[in-house]
Design a protein around this nucleic acid. Structure first.
Lengths: 245, 245
DNA sequence: AAGTGGTCTAGACCACCAT
DNA sequence: TGGTGGTCTAGACCACTTA
């Protein structure tokens, strides 16, 4: 491992440009031939680097048009990061109602997960999500205030688009992947009221860490889901294979 | 879409060979140059076809040795198909105890999922899985008897290796991917007894369809998991990205 | 030393999109 | 019509494994 392959270096350069905002979401990268000139490599090597960025969903190729920085349109987010689907029937978009928005300090675990010093300031946000016009999830979000310094409840709730779109457009943080740990739990009094279920009803608990380029953490989120009419869909392979079939 | 790209045709040919048993699990495929000759394409085209098979985990490349048909060794299975991990600490291998093994008929839903006619004969198998020597999951498995005609409880329980390894070595059915739907449920009397939890304890319910080449279904499985000390880990992206980093 | 996969190049041609 | 990504080729050289 004395030296990384050329295409890995090209990929690193491109990733730095993406993370640093040289090319913004929705914008086109230089053409592959232009990149080949710029990095002084062959076009095949550029293609291999871009291939991997496409696999990681950092960029999107469009034949005849160019290669574009992934942007967080609603459909893309629904598909990649929202895994709650009706037991039968089509996926639907959740509607979000913000119930709480306050300042706090990170617990030790949260600080570790967010890669900030213990006790660092955070935002705590609670959202109620409705599916098909009925309460289905309660989301508790934790954000490092260092990464979202000027966030306000107004900015958060008055956004035109999705939450991840806000992170991306206002703070330059594009969520690329998330890892989730799931378990079963029981509804307490408050959550039961919000989700309109009985106390002690079974809920699916999802603990998510959302990450951007270089695996840097962006957001912590705990979701409590009423799975009476919805499932959590985990179709590993399909997403990888979809474009390969 | 008049004509598929050459490398897709090569990939299809290879997949047919794999599904048909021309190359058995653990065996080496012909070298890439040999395949290039055989299909009368350039070596780069063969590589692109094999690249996709690698991404789908149907084969594994080993530099200097060759390309091998994926075989279901325990470590691989643990990593790709067993998503239950300790809340903290290292993954451990589950120990399986078969509690029931009987003949039955498929329900309408099962028949659809298994792609067999409604009412077709099936095997029903119940296993108790222990993690760190304590009961943690109950698995209810449904198999089409048409695909496992000569299976017996003895063969099933006396196998030397994992269940998926048995499917592969004895029936030529390599499980390549699975899709799972998760929800939260409550322990009934019988399950509570098996998992040594209280009635009404929260359990994670996992409904899985395991598939082989061409997405043909192999196995239906419902798992009920005690998530007091274990989580279901869904790290989309990591598996895709792991080899790319 | 021989054989395998892994990287890299240079160029041709095609399919698609914008204008 | 010109520019973009997508496919395909032919060949060189490297890194690794096995004997």
């Amino acid at each position: 491992m004395l030296e990384a392959p050329l295409y890995k270096e090209v990929k690193q350069s491109l990733t730095r440009g993406l993370a640093g905002g040289e090319w913004r979401p929705g914008e086109a990268l230089p053409s592959e031939s232009a990149l080949a000139l710029r990095f002084k490599v062959s076009i095949g090597t550029v293609r291999k680097a871009v291939d991997e960025l496409v696999a990681e969903r950092a960029v999107v190729r469009q034949q005849g048009r160019g290669t574009f920085v992934s942007s967080h349109d609603a459909k893309r987010l629904l598909f990649h990061f929202f895994h709650i689907v009706p037991r039968t029937g089509e996926r639907s978009y959740p509607e979000t109602r913000t119930l709480a928005f306050r300042r706090d300090r990170a617990t030790a675990d949260e600080a570790t997960a967010l890669a900030v010093p213990a006790g660092d300031p955070v935002w705590r946000i609670r959202n109620l999500l409705l599916l098909d016009e009925a309460p289905a999830l309660v989301d508790d979000i934790v954000l490092a205030r260092a990464r979202f310094p000027d966030l306000t409840e107004r900015i958060f709730t008055q956004r035109e688009n999705t939450i991840y779109n806000l992170y991306q457009s206002r703070y330059g943080l594009s969520v690329l992947r998330s890892s989730e740990r799931l378990r079963a739990s029981l509804a307490g009094a408050e959550i039961a009221r919000l989700l309109v279920v009985k106390r002690g009803a079974p809920l699916l608990e999802i603990n998510r860490i959302a990450r951007t380029y270089h695996d840097a953490p962006v957001e912590l989120r705990r979701s409590l889901v009423n799975t009476e009419r919805y499932d959590y869909l985990s179709d590993l392979g399909k997403s990888e294979v979809s474009q390969l079939t």
